[in-house]
Computed example of a mutant assay.
Amino acid sequence: MQVYASASPRLSAQSHRCSRRAAVVAQCRLTNRLGVPADAPPVSERVESPSWRVGAAGALSALAVLGGAAVAPGSALAATPGLDSSTYFFDSGRLLSADKREKLNSELSEFSKRTGWNLRIYTAYGPGTTPPEDDLRAAWGPLGKNSVVVGYDATAPSLINVPYLGDDALATLKRPWWGEFKGRFGNLFYVREQGEQTAISVSTQVLMECLGKPGGCLVVPGVPDEQYYFTLITSVAGGLVAGFVAKLEPQGFVQSRWVWVLLFSPVWGSLYINFGLGPIVSRTEDKLPILQNTLGFAVGAAAPYLVQVLRAPPVKEDQQ
């Protein structure tokens, strides 16, 4: 009895230690299967760790940002209401009426799909109404070589501004073209005479016309009134020079009057051809201005003969 009594506590203690070892081995096997180090702290301690909380919060934030970008690409970063990738004309300054705004936006969208040019236009009425540059790039980006962004600010000295001009657009329309484009449709006198809506509509149509041509445009199409009057005056001046030169008497090596006309041809030719017909032929296909300037040159050339015919004959002494 004493032997069995002394052996019972030993067996119970040894079996308890074996059960603890078996539990530890089972726990190690389970953690190794899950990919957690065997010496890692318990789950309850890992949950309470501040570093684990920070990592979980960062992962959730990254998932939220990626999920938002996947839902709305290109427009999720634009904070300006109504400005997204489908907006080609953003009337932030409210310079056009609703119907004209929608019409111009559809025309720009169709032009972009047909030609491949990323032409975007916005308006403003003062510094507070100008869309932020980051919002424009987020909504209309990426702005590459075929991108053009034109801004119209009704309070600026020049109505037209080109904040972004791609390399392909600059190769198609040279810098002198852009200078003439802004000077013609953006100057204060043109805007005051034609109005802001007309200036925006006409200049946008001209821009789409020149970008749509394979070789672009050397000059801005259309002849304004002040430029046409200048060509008419130079045409008449060229005719006057040719007419007065043709009345010179032959002298020296000049044996005929037509030689005088030939010698002075660089003068009257430049006035009539270069300054009278050149700006019109290069900017419009209308034949009426050409006919008018040609008639002006003919009247100028005939003016010396008309003065001689209409001049009163001299009074003879016997008639006094």
Rank of each mutant, 00 (worst) to 15 (best):
G151P: 11
G183R: 08
L96W: 07
W140M: 14
P131F: 00
V149H: 03
N105H: 06
R184W: 10
L136A: 07
K182V: 08
D168H: 13
S61V: 15
G186V: 00
S75P: 13
A69E: 13
P81Y: 12
D134Y: 09
L108E: 03
G141K: 11
Y125W: 10
E133M: 03
V71R: 14
G68P: 10
F185Y: 13
F181P: 03
W178N: 02
P81I: 02
L63H: 05
T155E: 06
E107C: 02
N161E: 14
A56V: 08
S61C: 15
P131C: 00
E180I: 04
Y125Q: 09
L104W: 01
W178Y: 07
K174I: 06
T123E: 05
L173E: 05
R120H: 11
A154I: 09
A169M: 11
K174N: 12
L83P: 03
Y125T: 11
Y122Q: 08
S92T: 10
G179F: 07
L104C: 01
K174P: 07
P163E: 12
F185C: 02
G179V: 09
I121C: 08
T123N: 01
Y164Q: 09
G68H: 15
P127Y: 02
E102F: 00
F111S: 04
W117T: 03
D91G: 01
D168K: 15
V149Y: 04
R175I: 08
S147V: 10
T87I: 02
A70I: 00
P142C: 10
Y122T: 05
I160A: 06
G58S: 14
L173G: 01
A76M: 10
S147K: 13
A156Q: 11
S97D: 13
P73F: 04
A62L: 11
G67L: 13
A154D: 10
K182Y: 00
R94F: 01
A72C: 15
G58K: 15
G68Q: 15
G144P: 06
K113S: 03
G55D: 15
G55A: 15
V71N: 11
N105Y: 03
A171S: 08
Y125E: 11
W178K: 02
P176V: 00
G67S: 15
P157E: 08
L165C: 09
G166E: 08
V150P: 04
T155G: 06
P127S: 04
T130K: 14
G67Y: 10
N118P: 05
A171Y: 03
S75L: 15
E133R: 06
T123Q: 01
S92K: 08
A138M: 05
K174A: 12
P142M: 12
A78C: 03
G82K: 10
